[in-house]
C-alpha cells in the first residue's frame, strides 16, 4: 500500500494549482523514495517534472512502485476542500482505482475524507540528461512573475539573453517593444531578494511567453526561481519546494527557420 502524510497541506494545494493549467492529466509515480511526475502539455512544447522525496513527508510508506493516473482539475477540486492549515494524508491500496485524501484541521477537531477516481494513462517519458547550463539565473519568484506578466501584455515571444551585463528579456508587438534587464545583485540582507547570475558563456534564446507566464503559477511555492539556459536546448524554470523537493518546467525554444 501507499500512504503519505504532509502536515503543511497547503503545499500540495499550491503544487496542483501550479500545474493544472499546463497539464490535464498525468501519472504520479509513487515509490519507496517518494512521489514523482513527468507530464507534457498537449502540444508537447513544455513539460512539468515534479519530485517529492519520501523524507520530506511527515510520514511516508510505499510498499510497491505504482503509477497513479490523475486528472488534475479533479484533484484540484478535492484539494480545494482542504483548509490551508490542514494536514493531508494520501492513501491508496496496491493497484487501486482510487486515491483517498484525508484532511485534518490543525487542532484535529475536523476530519474529512475524499476519494479521487484514478485513471489509466499511457504516458511517454522523456530522458532528460543532467547537464551543465551556459547560464543559471536565480531571482525572486515574484520578479520573474512580474516580468513575464508585463511582457505578455506587449508581445507573444521573448528573447532571453544572458551576458556579463545581466539577463535581458525583450519582446515586441503591436503596442511597441519592451526590454527588462536584471543585474547580478546580492546587496539585500534577505537572500530571497538576491539575483544571482552564474554565466559560463553568453546565450540567447527565444520562447513563447504564454508558457513562461503559465510557469509563474508556481510562484506561491518558493521565494526564488532558477532559470537555466543553454543554446538550442529547452529552458528550465525551477522552484524548490522547501525540504520536500522541486517542480521544474521545461519549455522548448523557438527554432530559426
Amino acid at each position: 500500500m501507499f500512504e503519505a502524510k504532509i502536515s503543511q497541506g497547503s503545499v500540495l494545494k499550491k503544487l496542483v494549482e501550479a500545474l493544472k493549467e499546463l497539464v490535464t492529466e498525468g501519472n504520479i509515480d509513487v515509490s519507496p523514495s517518494g512521489m514523482s511526475l513527468q507530464a507534457m502539455d498537449s502540444s508537447h512544447v513544455c513539460l512539468v517534472s515534479l519530485v517529492l522525496r519520501d523524507d520530506g513527508f511527515d510520514h511516508f510508506r510505499c510498499d510497491r512502485n505504482m503509477p497513479m493516473g490523475i486528472h488534475f482539475a479533479n484533484f484540484s477540486k478535492i484539494l480545494k476542500c482542504a483548509g490551508n492549515d490542514d494536514a493531508i494524508t494520501l492513501k491508496a491500496e496496491d493497484n487501486a482505482d482510487q486515491l483517498t485524501l484525508m484532511f485534518e484541521s490543525s487542532n484535529q477537531d475536523r476530519i474529512s475524507d475524499f476519494d479521487l477516481k484514478l485513471m489509466s494513462i499511457e504516458s511517454e517519458h522523456l530522458g532528460i540528461p543532467d547537464q551543465d547550463y551556459s547560464a543559471e539565473i536565480k531571482m525572486p519568484a515574484s520578479e520573474y512573475q512580474r516580468i513575464v506578466r508585463d511582457l505578455t501584455s506587449i508581445g507573444d515571444t521573448v528573447l532571453i539573453s544572458a551576458t556579463k551585463e545581466g539577463i535581458k528579456f525583450s519582446t515586441s508587438g503591436d503596442v511597441g517593444t519592451a526590454n527588462v534587464t536584471l543585474r547580478h545583485n546580492t546587496t539585500s540582507e534577505k537572500q530571497e531578494e538576491h539575483t544571482i547570475i552564474d554565466l559560463k558563456e553568453p546565450v540567447a534564446l527565444t520562447f513563447a511567453l504564454r508558457y513562461l507566464k503559465n510557469f509563474s503559477n508556481a510562484t506561491a511555492l518558493a521565494p526564488q526561481v532558477k532559470l537555466s539556459l543553454t543554446k538550442d536546448l529547452p529552458i528550465v524554470v525551477e522552484y524548490q519546494v522547501g525540504e520536500l523537493g522541486n517542480i521544474r518546467f521545461y519549455l522548448a525554444p523557438k527554432i530559426d527557420d
Binding site: S43, L126, G127, T206, P234, A252, P253, I255
Partner: peptide, 14 residues
C-alpha cells in the same frame, strides 16, 4: 519569430 520546437526534438523518448 521562428518555429516552435517540440520537446521530442531535444530529449530522447524513453
Amino acid at each position: 519569430k521562428g518555429n516552435q520546437g517540440r520537446l521530442e526534438s531535444f530529449f530522447s523518448v524513453l
